[in-house]
């Protein structure tokens, strides 16, 4: 299934755009993207790209459009204009490559479901029947990776906030995604849970492309290779910019559960700043 998924769409996409690198090396390609909710403009001519294996922090104030951008990237929303490509194809054709961890603040505590079953949802692909044996191994692997294996029999509603977020990460990991997209995964989390959460993410640094939206915009986790800022330029409120990062001096120690780097919102980098030496 995944082989078909990768060859056909690339051929089609290559006709329409010229990616600067081989499509399998460009995890995300946004070109001239525009999006609005009815009359409210959210994005206008947004262009940026993310290389395979990069760890990207997406920052921006509440309401700037971080979640909207993530939804465009995972294919939950369609752009009004422009293009989003994930590994060279529209997100809807890259279902197997994308692992999404939604914000999920409004889940229903009365829903009877166990951790193992929540994670098992990661096995779904369209309306195809779920192949049991081989995919059960993936569920167990994902449960262990996110350090929730011991919780697998527990009702989801009895977990703490931090545990729940890790379960949702496990669910996203089941399909061995090449791109992991997380929407404010550590919001309202205590310091210890946050540390544990970033420890889990650290395992995937380098091997999996990670795009994580965060609420705090002055510092980001030191895992980040790249920082993209949504709507922080007053002159361009509907844009996404690449900002410089530097080693943080006197940084608060109680965020992102470990080392952080400072975001220099005053230094904007060109979009090809990341391309040197990349195929």
């Amino acid at each position: 299934m995944s082989d078909m998924d990768h060859s056909a769409p690339q051929a089609q996409a290559a006709d329409e755009v010229h990616l600067p690198h081989a499509p399998e090396n460009v995890a995300i390609w946004c070109q001239n993207l525009a999006f609005h909710y009815r009359e409210v403009e959210v994005f206008n001519s947004v262009s940026f790209h993310v290389h395979r294996g990069e760890f990207v922090a997406l920052t921006g104030k509440n309401g700037a459009g971080k979640s909207t951008l993530l939804k465009l990237i995972v294919g939950l929303l369609e752009p009004a204009q422009g293009q989003v490509l994930v590994f060279g194809a529209p997100p809807r054709r890259r279902i197997e490559s994308i692992g999404y961890v939604p914000q999920h603040t409004g889940f229903d505590a009365a829903f009877p479901i166990r951790v193992e079953e929540v994670v098992g949802m990661g096995r779904l692909s369209g309306l195809s029947p779920v192949a049991k044996r081989q995919k059960q191994e993936n569920v167990e692997w994902a449960l262990r990776q996110a350090e929730v294996y011991d919780l697998r029999e527990r009702p989801f509603s009895t977990l703490s906030g931090g545990q729940r977020r890790r379960v949702l990460v496990a669910r996203a990991l089941v399909g061995h995604p090449k791109l992991l997209v997380l929407d404010e995964p550590t919001a309202n989390m205590d310091v210890d849970s946050e540390k544990k959460f970033y420890d889990v993410l650290e395992r995937f640094k380098g091997s999996t492309t990670v795009l994580v939206a965060t609420h705090d915009s002055d510092f980001v986790s030191a895992l980040a290779d790249t920082v993209l800022c949504v709507g922080q330029d007053i002159d361009h409120p509907h844009s996404v910019h690449r900002h410089a990062i530097e080693q943080a001096v006197n940084a608060p120690e109680d965020i992102y559960g470990g080392k952080v780097v400072r975001v220099r919102h005053d230094i904007e980098l060109p979009d090809d700043a990341c391309c040197e030496g990349k195929e």
Binding site: L76, I95, Y100, M121, L124, R171
Partner: peptide, 12 residues
């Protein structure tokens, strides 16, 4: 349980 996640997995 989670319509949004199901949609990203291609469930109609």
């Amino acid at each position: 349980f989670d319509e949004e996640f199901a949609a990203t997995k291609g469930v109609p």
